[in-house]
Amino acid sequence: MARVPDLDRRRALRQAASVSVATGLYGISFGALAVTAGLSTLQAQALSVLMFTGGSQFAFIGIVGAGGGGLAAAATATLLGARNALYGAVVSPFLQVRGLRRLAAAHVTIDESTAVSTAQRDPQTARLGFWWAGLGVFVLWNACTLVGSVVGDALGDPRRWGLDAAAGAAFLGLLWPRLAARRAQVVAAGAVVVALALTPVTPAGVPVLAAAVVAVVVGWRIPAAASRATVEDT
């Protein structure tokens, strides 16, 4: 088996560490929102340890906090978490794990571990990135959930501190460095402006759909305008 270059290993570990820290920190927002929704610290911690998929956890406490039943909350969380099964099909070929390691791999197959692993150039660094990102997020997410749930009462309404927007901010922080091209930055900025403008005046879900439409239109118009400019210059 060929030895993985140290540069590739360091790059994979650096990516895993940055993703783990950025994702783990907004576990504080989950912990604070969970206790505000009526869960105890132990219940919030159990969700982070056993469910361990951020989007599903936020959906669960959102429904419970709005007065919904546990069955409805669990069903919604399950639907959102179903995407992780698709990630499993992506990472399984290069992980090649069996037994208890397979169960552990399934538990930490999340957005972040999949993204880091699939960004690598060979199976060995892909495995390295997967495990370090998955386990790193697991440890920090659970630690920050505990912090958020313990200090949640002292903070008061988490929305005063912007904790309800922490997940979106963290994802934007992870995404923005990849928007190196000017076209990608313009598309992202246009979508954000539209979503923010529509959020106060439209039903939930509409701003996201509108932002997606804007992204498609702007992304299509920019190359078209560039093509016309090239023709005019020649």
Score class of each variant (00 low, 15 high):
A12Y: 08
A17K: 11
L198M: 02
L209S: 07
T125A: 08
A12N: 09
Q45H: 03
L95R: 11
V21L: 15
V187E: 14
A166L: 09
D164V: 01
W176N: 02
L95S: 09
D157P: 01
A16M: 14
Q124G: 00
S227A: 15
R11Q: 10
L209P: 09
P5V: 00
D6L: 14
A204C: 02
R228H: 15
Y26A: 01
G156Q: 03
G62V: 05
A17T: 12
V147C: 11
G65E: 05
A197N: 05
S18I: 11
L209A: 12
W220D: 08
T125V: 09
D164S: 10
I61M: 11
T23R: 03
Q15L: 12
R101I: 07
V116L: 04
P200D: 06
R102P: 05
A170G: 03
A215Q: 07
P5C: 02
T76V: 10
S40W: 13
Q185G: 09
A115E: 01
T53W: 15
V4R: 02
L95I: 08
I63M: 07
A211H: 01
T202A: 08
Y87E: 05
L146W: 14
W176M: 06
F60H: 12
L95H: 11
D153F: 13
V90C: 06
A106P: 04
D111Y: 07
R102M: 07
A225C: 04
R9M: 03
L172R: 06
A115D: 01
